[in-house]
Design a protein around this nucleic acid. Structure first.
Lengths: 144, 144
DNA sequence: GATGTCGTAACTACTAGTGTTACGACTTTC
DNA sequence: GAAAGTCGTAACACTAGTAGTTACGACATC
């Protein structure tokens, strides 16, 4: 499917900010997060920018600026993050509209649409079951 | 996520072959299916080739050749098709391995791995609930 | 005013998916 | 055994999305 790492990196960033704040710091910089995730600060800023639009994080500018959580991780689910960073559907329809004169070409899109909607709804439900607090717990549970 | 249309086109092809066979024909050609799906015959042959590896369809060569179903559509689910045409995982990990010296960098991959596996298992379960016979029924149920 | 960080544009590189052409392999038909 | 039709597959081009990188203005603190 050519999966991407956006949800993974976003979860990484949120977990990092949370743990950093628990150590007493107010904000985390994209530089620090990028270093932990082994990527570029701009990639982090872009992702966190989308999370900010969704109301999950806040940012400050200027000296001593950075990112902080806008809500408790217990009230933040993977669905919130998913919807913030993954706009499109899971499965695509035909690129070119199929032959509408053919029974299959005519009926296939509504048929698959209905099926896909049900599946995506289930996916959302599953993502909504996992909070970012769960993620942090699992992260800290990794054996050393 | 940059979704693709492989599952959609594969379902289209299977539905088309089935209905064509119900009209008394033995095999369907990639040319006919491509015409209905409004794509190129080679695209259809590639996809059906993967379905053949999975034991869902059969092909004949030579004059009067083409594709036929290897099983009843009632015994064929979207999961069978999905697994045949979509090898990779739904969500990707970091491209470059995160900083193993950081608590988050160290624990994030196993954490997300476990979560993703559960979600993909649910997705599989949902896909397994829909047979290709269901798809054909929905296709024929489209209002004219 | 100097400094540090975000916000964002611009560009490159890479990959996956799709469409297309071409041609050999194979089987039927005559 | 030659012709014809279809699969099987390689090769290539095009597109879109993701990610990485550089650059620089905007902004807030000191």
């Amino acid at each position: 499917m050519s999966a991407n790492s956006r949800l993974t990196i976003a979860a990484h960033a949120l977990a990092w900010i949370s743990l950093y704040q628990r150590q007493g710091h107010e904000v985390a910089t994209s530089e620090q997060i990028a270093s932990s995730a082994n990527t570029n600060p701009v990639v982090i800023r872009r992702l966190l920018g989308e999370l900010r639009k969704a109301g999950l994080v806040e940012s400050r500018r200027g000296v001593g600026a950075g990112w902080s959580l806008a809500r408790e991780l217990t009230s933040m689910t993977l669905l919130d993050v998913y919807e913030a960073v993954e706009p499109g559907p899971l499965f695509a329809m035909h690129r070119a509209t199929p032959d509408q004169g053919c029974v299959v070409g005519y009926g296939i899109q509504p048929a698959m649409q209905g099926i896909y909607e049900g599946i995506e709804e289930t996916l959302r439900h599953e993502l909504a079951r996992v909070t970012l607090e769960d993620v942090v717990r699992d992260v800290l549970a990794a054996p050393r």
